[in-house]
Amino acid sequence: MPSYKLTYFPVKALGEPIRFLFTYGGTEFIDNRFNEEDWPKIKPTTPFGQVPMLEVDGKKVAQSTAISRYLAKQYGLAGKDDWEALEIDSTVDTIHDLRANIAAYQYENNETAKEEKLKRAKEIVPYYLERLDAQVGKNGGYFVGGALSWADFVFVGVLDYLNYMMKENIIEKYDNLKQLKQKVEEIPAIKSWIEKRPPSDL
């Protein structure tokens, strides 16, 4: 069994889907959370100056989506054939597009530009959520193939981060997405993880 160490900020955000996957798979991993002030020391030790970073038997790899896909394949959460794998990939990329649109507003320091980006986010977020909600409705309560996949973990894992950035519960009006969140959070392994993980807003 390889040894796994996940290095990330002390928040859920992009690290949480990976933590969900490890937990679901019943795989031991070191959940290495560092404080903001230690980032300048850690950054040069990462492959491309970014986290999450996963170490597998000491070998380092970056990119949260690639890490999640790698684990999902091991736990049978990457679709039952190439077409489903493609649909899952496409959904995950869409979720990250949604995140990028919200983050563009959240991390903008120029006030005028920030207002513009907030206006854009307020238009684009419902546009994405309506479609994602309909997708879950058509697929038996999951994003793809009527079954749990890593796309579901990505969405539910980053949701607190999206809500934090938008300062609201963005899925309030979307029943299929609300039910998906509940389903994922009620998986026994995930439920026990949520109860014991360190608290954070995002």
Results as ranks from 00 to 15, higher is better:
103 A>H: 12
78 A>V: 05
70 Y>N: 08
88 I>H: 07
53 M>H: 00
163 N>P: 13
152 D>I: 06
179 Q>A: 13
84 E>H: 01
157 G>Y: 05
122 K>Y: 03
154 V>N: 12
71 L>Y: 11
99 R>Y: 10
166 M>W: 12
91 T>S: 07
116 E>V: 15
147 A>V: 07
90 S>A: 13
93 D>L: 12
202 L>D: 05
21 L>N: 09
147 A>G: 10
87 E>C: 14
189 A>R: 05
152 D>F: 06
74 Q>F: 09
128 Y>N: 09
163 N>W: 08
74 Q>I: 13
171 I>H: 11
191 K>P: 10
159 L>H: 06
182 Q>E: 15
142 Y>I: 01
81 D>G: 06
17 P>T: 02
24 Y>Q: 03
90 S>H: 09
92 V>T: 13
189 A>E: 14
115 E>F: 06
71 L>M: 10
136 V>H: 05
107 Y>K: 04
163 N>C: 14
77 L>C: 06
103 A>P: 14
59 K>G: 02
27 T>R: 09
162 L>T: 12
145 G>T: 12
201 D>H: 07
17 P>K: 01
201 D>Y: 07
60 K>C: 04
4 Y>D: 04
93 D>T: 14
150 W>T: 11
92 V>N: 08
26 G>E: 04
46 T>A: 00
145 G>A: 10
19 R>K: 02
6 L>N: 01
58 G>W: 04
97 D>V: 13
55 E>I: 00
144 V>M: 01
162 L>W: 09
142 Y>C: 00
39 W>F: 00
154 V>F: 04
29 F>C: 01
174 Y>C: 11
66 A>I: 15
121 A>K: 10
156 V>G: 11
101 N>Q: 14
157 G>C: 08
77 L>H: 08
76 G>F: 11
185 E>N: 15
39 W>K: 00
39 W>Q: 00
23 T>S: 08
89 D>S: 07
185 E>Y: 13
166 M>L: 13
198 P>N: 04
168 E>V: 10
130 E>W: 06
162 L>D: 08
110 N>K: 10
173 K>N: 15
183 K>H: 05
150 W>F: 07
67 I>N: 07
107 Y>A: 03
102 I>L: 08
129 L>D: 08
193 W>P: 03
182 Q>C: 05
120 R>M: 14
81 D>I: 09
91 T>G: 02
150 W>R: 07
174 Y>K: 11
166 M>N: 12
